[in-house]
C-alpha cells in the first residue's frame, strides 16, 4: 500500500496552489518520502500547525498508505 511521489505532490499542490513542492523518495522504496513545501499559507503558523495543514492536505493518507514523510515547511521569503 505504498504511495507514488507524484500522488503526494498532487495532493499538496491541490491544497497549497501557490506552493513550491519538492518530494523526494528517500529510500527508493516508494515508502519513505521527504517533502519540502514552501507556501505563503504557512505564514504566522507554528510548526505544529504547519505540519498539521500538510497532514490534512494528504487526506488521511499519512500513517496509512503513506508510511513515512519527513516534512519541512517554509514561508517564501
Amino acid at each position: 500500500m505504498a504511495m507514488a511521489g507524484s500522488d503526494i505532490e498532487r495532493l499538496l499542490k491541490g491544497a497549497f496552489p501557490d506552493a513550491h513542492v519538492v518530494v523526494v523518495d528517500l529510500a527508493g522504496d516508494g515508502d519513505h518520502y521527504g517533502a519540502r513545501i514552501t507556501s505563503a499559507a504557512f505564514a504566522g503558523k507554528s510548526r505544529i500547525q504547519q505540519h498539521k495543514m500538510v497532514y490534512d492536505a494528504l487526506q488521511g493518507q499519512m500513517g496509512g498508505a503513506l508510511h513515512a514523510l519527513a516534512l519541512e515547511t517554509a514561508v517564501p521569503k
Binding site: 510548526r47 505544529i48 505540519h51 488521511g60 519527513a70
Partner: peptide, 25 residues
C-alpha cells in the same frame, strides 16, 4: 494529539511535535 505519526514528544504535558519538528528546534 491529532497527529498521525510516531514519535511524539511531550514536555510538561504539552505536545511539542514529531521527529522533524524536534530536529528543527
Amino acid at each position: 494529539s491529532n497527529w498521525p505519526t510516531i514519535p511524539q514528544l511531550y514536555v510538561k504535558g504539552e505536545f511539542l511535535g514529531g521527529a522533524d519538528i524536534v530536529r528543527e528546534m
